[in-house]
Amino acid sequence: MGKRPAVAMLWTGYALTAVWAMSIRVALGFYPLGEPRPFLLRPFAFSVGLIVANAVTLFFAWKVRGDAPPRTRARTAWLLIAISAAAEIVRYGLLRAAASRLGAPSPGSVPLFPLSAAAGLIATALLLIAFGALWSAFRPLGLGRLGVAHWIGIAAIVATIPVLLKLPAQGAQALGALAPARLPLIVRLQQFDPVLIAGCAIAGIFLVRTGKDAGRGPLAAGFRCVGLFGLVRMAALVVPLIPVSGIQWIEVPATGAGIASDWLITLAVYYRWRLTIESRELTARLAPD
């Protein structure tokens, strides 16, 4: 498949998953948690889209890892991204399993929620480390030096962290019937989730700058996707906190875009794989007859 159709397919996957997530969010107003609802509007139905995104990420990240020289930061980064995608698949698989058992008399579904939360935390932490490793791989070339505007952006993200740290407690209250299904350790660990997301947003700034320094091409396009990933994840956290009337109209699309943002990592990994493909094609062209 050519580059353009593949990229269009991945963006379509992102849009569909985001719209799906938004529909489910809106449906919460009509069908309270635990009430029967149409299959496509069940709370975790959209996880199918995210499982597909992470499966594609895992496939390409593993191939890119194979193209990176041994014992390099880039190879470590792509390995971590592949493991992160695998952890996300486990996470959404567990969520589906937990959701399918919701309301059933068996208490067997209870540990599935904390396990899925733990998988989500691990996935985000691995992504953050991977982004740092990727940036450091380009640093010896002098790419990715930040300007004043970047530091202002980072300061703004850091300034929101104290507010974001209060979010999981509010989230636990909002969960209502599901709250007892969380283990105290997981709840404590989840308090760091916004910090990890803020870290990903900051790493995104570093990588966007690296891509800008690199110039046009698949490398820069991939780094822009990572930057967008950090941005939409942060927006999904921050927008609901903005004390403006009517913010709920922005909150729903922001949440949908944030939930579906795994597709942006898929796009970033695919763009990086294109660099390998294009390098091989041009090398073949330059091969002596």
Partner: peptide
């Protein structure tokens, strides 16, 4: 090579 991979380095 360390940043962009073996194929890119070979190119």
């Amino acid at each position: 090579q360390p940043a962009c991979g073996l194929a890119a380095g070979f190119l």
